[in-house]
Design a protein around this nucleic acid. Structure first.
Length: 362
DNA sequence: CTCCTGTGGA
DNA sequence: TCCACAGGAG
């Protein structure tokens, strides 16, 4: 049994714009830039448990492991046994059920803000053209993250385990490059630690070492154990199937909860808004605070605002689309408007906008 | 708002 | 070398 997460037919070696490799032995400054697949076992024999394990030497910069990474190129369209299609059934009715950390799903309707401001629940002009334009750009570029690691996490596993893998994967993924997350998930799996039961009994330090390179590994290791415990006690080892219950898990906020609902349960309750989606939607003037035309200030506000008009079919694809776009063209600072084909529709084009949340750094 | 923690751009 | 960044918790 291998962990074929992301195993894909073949990875041509060619990475677009990313200075891939530099597998210099210094392993330090270089190690994370590679947009590559980690020591990916291409077939089932590979992964020797011994090969992995980063020696987590605190500050020592030699997490060496010069594993030659194979530059990975976005596996085009050839989807591997992907997860089934997303379903949207229950989305509507439960949309207004109890929220916990989420802000109201529907923003207060604004009555008299008059002409200059687009009614908040109406689609902005040209949004379809813009979206299509971004898709075009995205298909020619290739951003490192097209498959947010966890989308395919454990696609070969039985449903319950697959779900747990997706949850674990999204937990680890924040602040972490996709290939790093992938490597961590893979190491967990190689050590049989991708189920609630196994993680529950595993030593936290062990988990920490296995997931090491991911951001905030200490906290995530502890959250992972807590989550496993909760899953065992309350959900028979499975993961919660509702937004609320997912949000109640430590380390799981709106962004991940929606992602997990989408991926693990194929149940679209809301848009997964991360900083890229947040930033770009604001630059495009697609979202605004309730009775104003001001930018939204938090991803949650963006989500609520965006959901008022974006057709549901776009709720899931909008995330990977904008994330990729945000990594290559519409970057946080100094967006490459000159390379952007839809700049003519963007109110922020060539204006050096910084992300809505960042503090002006002109 | 600050902290967590590693990364990579300035 | 410094510091912004990322998602969530406090």
């Amino acid at each position: 049994m291998s962990l074929a997460i992301l195993r894909s037919p073949s990875f041509p070696t060619a990475i677009g714009r990313f200075k891939c490799n530099k597998m210099s032995i210094t392993g330090f400054s270089s190690k994370k830039k590679i947009s590559a697949l980690d020591p990916i076992p291409d077939s089932d024999e590979v992964s020797q448990p011994e090969t992995r394990v980063f020696v987590r030497k605190k500050r020592m910069k030699k997490t060496l492991e010069v594993a030659v990474k194979q530059p990975r190129v976005e596996p085009k369209k050839e989807k591997l046994p992907d997860i089934e299609d997303f379903a949207y059934e229950k989305a509507d009715r439960s949309a207004h059920s109890g929220k916990s950390k989420l802000i109201a799903d529907v923003l207060p309707m604004n009555t008299e803000i008059a002409s200059t401001i687009r009614p908040i629940d109406e689609p902005p002009a040209n949004w379809e053209i813009v979206l299509e334009g971004i898709r075009k750009m995205r298909s020619s570029e290739d951003a490192p993250v097209d498959t947010m690691g966890c989308e395919k996490a454990g696609s070969f596993l039985p449903p319950k385990e697959r779900r747990f893998a997706v949850l674990a994967s999204s937990l680890l993924s924040s602040q972490t490059k996709d290939h790093v997350t992938h490597g961590a998930i893979q190491r967990l799996h190689q050590n049989g630690l991708l189920t609630a039961d196994a993680i529950d009994v595993a030593d936290e330090t062990t988990i920490k070492d296995l997931i090491y390179p991911v951001g905030f590994y200490t906290r995530k290791a502890s959250n992972l154990k807590k989550i496993a415990k909760i899953c065992l006690i309350k959900y028979d080892g499975d993961i919660p199937s509702s937004l609320e219950d997912l949000l109640a898990l430590p380390g799981i906020g709106p962004k991940m909860a929606h992602l997990v609902m989408n991926i693990a349960w194929n149940n679209v309750q809301g848009i997964c808004v991360d900083t890229h989606v947040h930033r770009i939607c604001n630059r495009l003037g697609w979202v605004s605070r309730p009775s104003t035309n001001q930018k939204t200030s938090t991803p949650e506000e963006t989500r609520a605002s965006l959901q008022l008009w974006l057709p549901k079919e776009e709720w899931v694809p909008i995330n990977p689309l904008l994330v990729g776009f945000g990594q290559t063209i519409c970057t946080p600072l100094r967006p490459r408007c000159e390379l952007c084909s839809i700049s003519e529709f963007c109110p922020s084009a060539f204006k050096e906008t910084s992300s809505p949340t960042s503090k002006k750094k002109l």
